[in-house]
Amino acid sequence: MCTVCGCGDGAKPGGLALNHDAAHRPGSAHHHGHDHDRGQGQLHFGTGPAGLSVAGVSQARLIEVETNILAKNDALATGNRRVLRALGAYAVNLVSSPGSGKTTLLVKTIAAMAGVPLAVIEGDQQTENDAERIRATGAPAIQINTGKGCHLDADMVGRAMERLNLTPGGFLFIENVGNLVCPAAFDLGEDAKVAILSVTEGEDKPLKYPDMFTAARLALLNKVDLAPHTDADLDAYEANLRRVNPRIDILRVSARTGEGMAGWVTWLRRQHAAKTLAKAG
């Protein structure tokens, strides 16, 4: 267990070998200094303040950096995006709270898109369960376990993409860690973020977590089969989504009954076609 971030040690069997040392190598978005990599950091970059034994120190100077803190992640995301573009593949970054129905929706989506090449990257803090649910459909899936990490980053996704052997012209679905906060800030190289909001979560969710719904191109209002049994106000959900993001597309679906799934599949095909056209043009 990493004492700074609490992330777990070791590769997960069958999962992506995001073992602790690899995840912490310098250059990895997860990298940070603690006991097991400090030696490496010192090797390259000197001994740090404790080793500042030279007397008569040189004068202080100002270095203008003017760089985004997540520049490293953004550069890796750009690389992922380039790979996807070359493949003619369309990538969706699925984000939501835990339990909104991301995995269930993916399983149904795979069934509805039979014949279309697609692959799935699953992100969870622990377990291989979701990747197994996907593999049961016959689609290739890689599980990333983030340990205590609460989001996927472009480095993890890039390495998972290498393993997946993506088919040209298909779709890549990335199920992010269930969390409505930080996945908004981490570009993975996707073509669109799709936010899932289930109708039992409360109409004001978009107002409480505006960043995620601002970043999303589409919101899927899921579990509409439950709406009649609850006092969920679907129009209020939509109004709040449009309040934080006037440009957002919204579709009402039920991953349980299949209601609205055809509209979602059409949305995906249109986006993919638009990307293909843009590439050609």
Partner: peptide, 24 residues
């Protein structure tokens, strides 16, 4: 927000700048 990841990003940049500009 994930402040730990941000701090890690800052650390990487500090290390890169230290190498480029040779400060300690």
């Amino acid at each position: 927000m994930h402040e730990m990841s941000l701090a890690e990003g800052i650390r990487q940049m500090v290390l890169a700048e230290a190498q480029r500009h040779g400060f300690t």
